[in-house]
Structure formats: structure tokens, C-alpha cells
């Protein structure tokens, strides 16, 4: 019994010592994917039948939707901002963080919507972002229209 207690105590001591010896500071940025996933809110698109429930859940407007499961837990979109340019068009920019220790390439495109949530103009071309390990980059897009733009949606996928 005593021997067993000594072994257990020694094990705890060794674990404590080894843990204290291996304590390192984590380099930023640190992505807490659990928290990121918990922030996600999906909305229902309007149902095909009036009064019925829509079976489709998707990201709300004015957000970045990562559509590629390969980078699902590798990147974090820190913020998405839209502002008007002096000419009245909409400038959209999103900061994307590579949470991994490997270089990543992502691609993104934007669809701008009008007040009725209909596409206000053709979807933009895919733009590629190069993300070295644990770095961030800015995705930027401009609308063509001015008064017709009321919302946007950014789709992101991994760059092939």
C-alpha cells in the first residue's frame, strides 16, 4: 500500500516537473476553434412555399462563408468591414488569419446584393490570398454599383 502510494506520488511529481520544464509561450495568433465555431450563427433562407419552413441553413448576409472543408479549421476571419469609397461604391475588406504552422492559399469572391437581397451585379472573380504560417492577409473587393449595393456575401475556399 505504501509502495503504491510512493509510486503514485513519484509519478505525479515527475509529471509536475516535466510539465513545468516543457512550459512554452504559444506564438500568436492562437485560434480557439471551439469558440470560433460557437460564434457561428446560421439563418434560414426564405422557404420555397409561403408559410413553410426552409430546409436550408446558411450564413447570413454581410459575412464570410468558408465553403471548403479543407480550410474549415485552418483559417479564421478576424473581421469583415464594408465602407463607401469617395465615389460611392462599396469597398469590402476582410482580414484572414492562417492558424496553422503551414503556408496556406485561399481564394475568395464576393457577391453584392441589393435591398431586395437579389444579386446587384455579377459575382466577382476569385482572388487568391497567400498566407504564410500564422500570418494574416487582407481580402479586398470593390463593388461596381453605388446606390444598388446594400449587402454582400463572401465565399472562401482553399486555393488549388
Amino acid at each position: 500500500m505504501n509502495r503504491h502510494a510512493i509510486v503514485k506520488g513519484s509519478t505525479v511529481l515527475v509529471m509536475f516537473l516535466s510539465a513545468s520544464a516543457c512550459q512554452h509561450m504559444e506564438p500568436a495568433p492562437i485560434c480557439d476553434m471551439g469558440a470560433i465555431a460557437s460564434q457561428r450563427t446560421l439563418v434560414s433562407v426564405p422557404a420555397a412555399v409561403p408559410g413553410g419552413a426552409s430546409p436550408l441553413q446558411e450564413m447570413p448576409l454581410n459575412s464570410v462563408s468558408i465553403t471548403d472543408h479543407r480550410i474549415l479549421n485552418k483559417v479564421y476571419v478576424r473581421n469583415v468591414t464594408a465602407r463607401r469609397t469617395p465615389s460611392g461604391t462599396v469597398e469590402l475588406y476582410a482580414q484572414v488569419i492562417n492558424c496553422t504552422d503551414h503556408p496556406l492559399q485561399t481564394e475568395a469572391r464576393t457577391q453584392f446584393y441589393d435591398a431586395g437581397q437579389a444579386p446587384a451585379e455579377p459575382v466577382s472573380a476569385w482572388k487568391r490570398l497567400y498566407l504564410p504560417p500564422r500570418t494574416s492577409n487582407i481580402y479586398r473587393e470593390f463593388s461596381l454599383g453605388t446606390t444598388s449595393i446594400h449587402a454582400y456575401m463572401v465565399e472562401m475556399r482553399e486555393g488549388e
Binding site: 476553434m33 470560433i36 457561428r40 464570410v64 468558408i66 474549415l72 479549421n73 469583415v80 496553422t100
Partner: peptide, 22 residues
């Protein structure tokens, strides 16, 4: 991180960031 991400994102939908309105 990958493991936790896969666990949390097992629903098949992508985490994303809600942004500012136009």
C-alpha cells in the same frame, strides 16, 4: 487545433465571421 476543429465542425458547415453592414 485541427482535431478540436473537426470535432466542433462535424456538422459540415463552415465557421465564418459576421461582418459589418454596408
Amino acid at each position: 487545433l485541427l482535431t478540436w476543429g473537426l470535432v466542433l465542425g462535424s456538422g459540415g458547415t463552415a465557421p465564418a465571421q459576421q461582418g459589418g453592414a454596408v
